Simulated assay, not measured.
Amino acid sequence: MTTPDLLFGTNLVAMVSPMEADGTISASGLTSLVDHLLTMGCDGIVVAGTTGEAPTLTEAETDRLVRGVVAQVHGKARVIAGVGTYDTRGSVHRARVAEAAGADALLLVCPYYSKPTQAGIVAHCLAVAEATNLPVMLYDIPGRTGVAMDAATLTELAAHPRIRAVKDAKGDLFEAMSVMAATSLAYYCGIDELNLPYLASGATGLVSVVGNVVADRNADLIGAVRRGDLGTARALQTSLLPLTAAIMRTSQGAIMAKAALAELGVIPHATVRLPLLESAPEHLARLAAVLPALAVPA
Score class of each variant (00 low, 15 high):
Ala235Ser: 12
Asn212Glu: 10
Val83Phe: 07
Ser239Cys: 09
Val92Lys: 01
Ala181Met: 05
Ala60Gly: 13
Ile163Pro: 10
Ile25Tyr: 06
Leu284Arg: 15
Val66Glu: 07
Gly143Asp: 13
Val128Gln: 08
Asp229Arg: 14
Glu193Leu: 15
Thr132Arg: 03
Ala200Cys: 10
Ala169Val: 14
Gly84His: 06
Met177Thr: 15
Glu175Tyr: 10
Ala81Leu: 13
Ile25Ser: 00
Ala186Ser: 07
Leu37Ala: 11
Val92Cys: 13
Leu107Gly: 02
Val70His: 00
Ala259Tyr: 10
Leu287Gln: 07
Ala77Met: 04
Glu263His: 09
Leu261Asn: 08
Leu243Phe: 00
His283Cys: 13
Val179Thr: 06
Glu278Asn: 01
Val128Gly: 03
Ala152Lys: 14
Thr62Ile: 07
Ala27Tyr: 06
Thr271Trp: 04
Ser184Tyr: 08
Glu130Leu: 13
Val83Trp: 03
Ile222Phe: 12
Pro275Arg: 04
Pro297Glu: 03
Leu276Tyr: 14
Ala215His: 06
Thr132Val: 10
Val210Asp: 10
Ile141Ser: 08
Val47Phe: 01
Ala270Arg: 13
Ala259Phe: 04
Ala98Asn: 03
Arg64Ser: 15
Ala259Met: 05
Tyr86Val: 11
Gly171Ile: 00
Glu61Cys: 01
Asp229Cys: 06
Leu185Val: 12
Pro18Ser: 12
Gly84Ile: 06
Gly9Trp: 12
Val266Arg: 12
Tyr112Leu: 13
Val16Cys: 00
Pro197Arg: 05
Val13Pro: 01
Arg227Lys: 09
Ser201Val: 05
Cys110Asn: 13
Gly223Trp: 10
